[in-house]
Write a protein that binds this DNA or RNA. Sequence first.
DNA 1: ACAATTCATTAATTTTGTAAAGTAAACTTA
DNA 2: TAAGTTTACTTTACAAAATTAATGAATTGT
Lengths: 147, 147
Amino acid sequence: MATQSDIKLVAEMRTTITRLVKKLRKHSVTGMALSLTERSVMELLYNEGELLPNELAAKEKITTQSMSQILNHLAELGYIKRRSSKDDKRKSFISLSAKGASVVEQVRHEKDNWLYEAITNACTQEEISLLKKALVPLNKLVDYEDE
Amino acid sequence: MATQSDIKLVAEMRTTITRLVKKLRKHSVTGMALSLTERSVMELLYNEGELLPNELAAKEKITTQSMSQILNHLAELGYIKRRSSKDDKRKSFISLSAKGASVVEQVRHEKDNWLYEAITNACTQEEISLLKKALVPLNKLVDYEDE
DNA sequence: ACAATTCATTAATTTTGTAAAGTAAACTTA
DNA sequence: TAAGTTTACTTTACAAAATTAATGAATTGT
């Protein structure tokens, strides 16, 4: 049933996410000239190894056209490698270069990371573990109705 | 202390929020031609009554210049009223028009609301209450270091 | 009175994405 | 095997949503 409380949750969730992403973008300029999506793509490649532009776009919720541009940019910076498939030459597997991988590692341990500072300073230990748990339903929302 | 788990949380949180906001934007076209931020501004005005462009911008984490554009758009649509202050003529108090208020109410109860569908269909009852609780620390992040 | 500040707006630009069209490879089918 | 279709990705043109810079008008401090 549609409780009043659920309706309020929906409105608040939308507002909070909308505002939070602006905060993230604003504080994302940690030396490197990467957008939030580009940064997310790098981490995805770091974790998963080799992926197709296709698959990257689906995971990041952008079009393949946008992904193409992002990959061009990352290639210019020397952060990724393209390997075209032997059995299907239309496909080009994307993976991080050594340089790209080291950038991911470096950025991860960067101490002047706004989100890290915000989480550890503004939140209690209980709240931090709450955030951790909340990632599960949040990611369900990200993947909802993607068939 | 900086646990490995916290570092992972930070990376995942950034990625999840980045992806989720794209999902929200994509499914936001519910008849009305309002951006996520414009929608958020409307709800803010609905809840708080009268605010200055100044204050609205701070809450939404955008510049006053951006807010100015948003207010122009909302005024064109007839959703807001401007009342210039008696004691300080530079200030213009912003509030919802009757039309604007009814739009907020209407949108709230709209049934083809993607986020509502996603939350109620993809999440269990426990997860929904988890999301509700997680709003507190999430909003702490939104307001962190705003002096 | 006048310099500095504040509040809001307008204008130009940047960022980040989409949509449409293009290219080439790989299937399908007859 | 040749014609037509689909798939995978790229390029180009454009739109949305924000930023920075410049302007104007009202207020405050000295």
